[in-house]
Design a protein around this nucleic acid. Structure first.
Length: 509
RNA sequence: GCCCCCAUAGUCUAGUGGACCAGGACGUCACCCUUUCAAGGUGAAGAUCGCGGGUUCGAAUCCCGCUGGGGGUACCA
């Protein structure tokens, strides 16, 4: 548990390097967050500079998704992460897109070939597949058999001359060990014999992750690699690669994995996994950041709510746990609710609710402007039911009866409370109607006094009077407090709806 | 199969040899508040600190083994 001491003894440069193959996964967002907190928070607290770099690893042309890069940049900004260098803002080590850096990798591969530390491999995909098949059948560990590692120079020349395709593979040492020092796990020793001659350069001239990440991290002066735990198995190869180039590897920290509730990888089967989905469902970026920060990190085991600034002020790599964490949707919801109900200002919350109402056709673009009356209207509504809002996307359903003139049809039976009957309910509504005719609902205290008086006069319990009114004006049995609900709905609608309820109950009964 | 990582309640976690018959939070349950639903308040249940061996006067904390979970095993990242 006690992590090795992390020495930040120089200016820090970290990077997040997504591949534009789709939407940004929460795991990726968490990794980005930790990188960002390390550079912008911890390093700066210690008096060093901390630079955040974004690099696009688009070396797999098959999985490339159009527009994915922009989507990742956008959602990262929404999340609250910013960066100093990247594909959109440039920087001293541009370009920050790997497909634009191809010559660098090809030169690197050639350099290793020249040094005898890498070799061309002419094996066809078919042969490799067949090889794996045979190994599987014999119960042998799968892996490249290094067939091309020792072919004669003349043969290589001949194949090259014949225009045969090839990949470049790393010539791993066949014996000995490689040590990897992980900032949160300490040292691990790997047997070189277990490590493969990984492909460095693909036959299409693009590098694999292994080559590109080593060359770029070195070229971009990355000081700390903080990436997912799934990279632990290839870390020793990367270390060997740095040595092959004669470079000092950056410090490495592998962040704990985020697991699905049932175990295993978090996938769509369990719920949302992409940041865009969480955004669309009405999760707040600050709630997401707060929750994700606590997945694998904690300050003291007690403090739960952290603003972005508090995270910057407190987060440290030293307190990142090595063990994987299960994603808990319920707890995320709780954080969202905390921010909605207790942390955001009413104006802020209102501004975030508005787009969801517009999408649902419950507000117009006019509500976007805080100086507009429609915004004020939504703010009044938000004020009375924010404590039952968990997701912003809940807003349209929760708020609809405040925002539409005509209530959708509802069952007349709902007007009759459990411990009451139709006659009582009708009497209650008729009495209430008289009260609403006599006084304005914007005086909550006065209306409450009048209605309580009415209940007493009719010999009804408060609930027997209030519930029919509630259903009459909202169409449902659940709502905010009755008097504030009446106030926000307003006199005209209240009278019309109570009148309609009386009619419904009379004709229905 | 092989390699690697991890291991405190259902979940996130605190805990770095004695103040821990293990603290906080989510979730669950109960009660209070109450015009409904929430929110809020109070409280409860829930962990033989995965198991077995050591080391030590003393271990959740150190060591070894096992088990379990997870990751990797691609011309994907």
């Amino acid at each position: 548990m006690s992590n090795p001491t992390i020495a930040i003894d120089r200016d820090v440069r970290v990077r997040y390097a997504p591949s534009p193959t789709g939407l940004l996964h929460v795991g990726g967002a968490r990794t980005t967050l930790f990188n960002w907190l390390f550079a912008r928070g911890e390093a700066k607290r210690l008096g060093f500079d901390g630079a955040m770099i974004l690099r696009i690893e688009d070396t797999d042309r098959n999985r490339l998704v159009e527009g994915a890069t922009q989507g990742i940049l956008d959602i990262l900004s929404w999340f609250g992460i910013d960066w100093d260098e990247g594909p959109d803002v440039g920087g001293p080590y541009a370009p920050y897109v790997q497909s634009e850096r191809l010559p660098l990798y090809q030169q690197g591969a050639q350099e290793l070939i020249d040094k005898g530390l890498a070799y061309r491999c002419f094996c066809s995909p078919q042969r490799l597949q067949q090889l794996r098949e045979e190994q599987r059948q014999k119960g042998l560990p799968p892996g490249y058999d290094r067939h091309c590692r020792s072919i004669a120079k003349e043969e290589i020349e001949a194949k090259l001359a014949a225009g045969e395709g090839y990949v470049v593979r790393f010539a791993m040492p066949r014996d000995g060990t490689t040590e990897v020092y992980d900032l949160i796990r300490g040292e691990s020793t790997f047997q070189n014999a277990n490590l493969e001659d990984l492909v460095l350069l693909k036959s299409d001239g693009y590098p694999t992750y292994h080559l590109a990440n080593v060359i770029d991290d070195h070229d971009m002066q990355i000081t700390h690699i903080m990436r997912g735990e799934e990279w632990i198995p290839t870390a020793p190869v990367h270390v060997r690669l740095y040595h092959a180039f004669g470079w000092e590897p950056p410090a490495i920290a592998h962040m704990p994995l985020i697991l699905a509730p049932g175990g295993g990888k978090l996938s769509k089967r369990h719920g949302s996994t992409a940041m865009e989905e969480f955004k669309a469902q009405g999760y707040l970026p600050e709630a997401l950041m707060n929750y994700l920060a606590l997945l694998g990190w904690s300050l003291d085991g007690t403090t739960e709510i952290f603003s972005r600034e508090e995270l910057l002020a407190n987060w440290s790599l030293e307190r990142v746990s090595p063990s994987p964490a299960t994603f808990d949707y319920d707890k995320l919801r709780w954080f969202n609710q905390q921010y909605i109900n207790h942390i955001l200002t009413l104006d802020d919350l209102t501004a975030r609710v508005v787009p969801f109402l517009i999408d649902a056709g419950l507000a117009t673009d006019g509500a976007l402007d805080p100086s507009n009356a429609e915004f004020a209207r939504v703010r009044d509504v938000t004020a009375v039911l924010k404590d039952r809002l968990v997701l912003l996307s809940d807003a349209p359903d929760l708020m609809s009866f405040f925002l539409v003139d005509e209530l959708p049809p509802y069952d007349a039976a709902k007007l009759i409370p459990k411990k009451s009957d139709a006659t009582q309910a009708l009497t209650a509504l008729q009495g209430a109607f008289a009260v609403f005719e006599a006084g304005a609902v914007d005086d909550e205290a006065a209306i409450e006094a009048s209605l309580r008086e009415l209940a007493e006069k009719l010999g009804l319990k408060a609930g027997q009077l209030f519930m029919p009114i509630r259903v009459a004006v909202t169409g449902r049995t659940e709502s905010p407090g009755l008097f504030e609900t009446l106030r926000v709905i307003g006199d005209d609608w209240v009278r019309a709806r109570v009148r309609a309820a009386i009619e419904l109950l009379s004709t229905d009964g």
